[in-house]
Amino acid sequence: MKPFEPVIVAFCCHYCAYTAADMAGSQRRCYPPNVRIVRVPCSGKVDTIHILKAFEKGADGIYVAGCLDGDCHFKNGNIRASRRVASVKGLLDEIGIGGERLEMVKISAGMGDRFADIAEQMTEKIRKLGPNPIHAARTAA
C-alpha cells in the first residue's frame, strides 16, 4: 500500500505568507507537494467556515499563515486570526477531527525558508496523524 499522503491547505496572507511562498519558489526551496495554497488579503480574512468547509471537503490539515507579530499590513489581522484559529481548534476537537490538524503560523515576506520548513513540519505532523477521519469515513461508506 502506498504511504498516506495528506492534503494540506495553507491560507496565506497576500503581503507576507504568500510572498514568502513565492520566495521559497524563487529560491528553488523544495517542500512537500502536499501543501496547497489559498491566497487571502489578510490572515484575518480567514473565516471559521472556510476552515470547516476545507475539512469537510477532505483536507487532512490546514494552516493559516499570516505576518509576524507587529508586521500585519492591516495592523492586527494576524492577531485576530491567531485567536480564531485557537477557537476553531476547540471546535474541531468537539467534532472529532482533532484541533491539532489546524495551526496558525507567522511568516514574514522574506522567509522563504521558513515557509518551506513549516510546510515540511506540517506535512510530517499530519502524516503521523493519519487521514482526516471525516474523509476516511466517507470513503469507507
Binding site: 473565516d47 467556515i49 470547516l52 469537510e56 468537539e94 467534532i95 472529532g96 469515513a137 469507507a140
Partner: peptide
Amino acid sequence: RKEVGILSSALQMAFLKQGKN
C-alpha cells in the same frame, strides 16, 4: 447566520465521521 453555517458544517462532519449523512 454565521454560527448557523458553522454548526451546520460541524454537525455534518461529526455525523459523517460516524458514517451518517
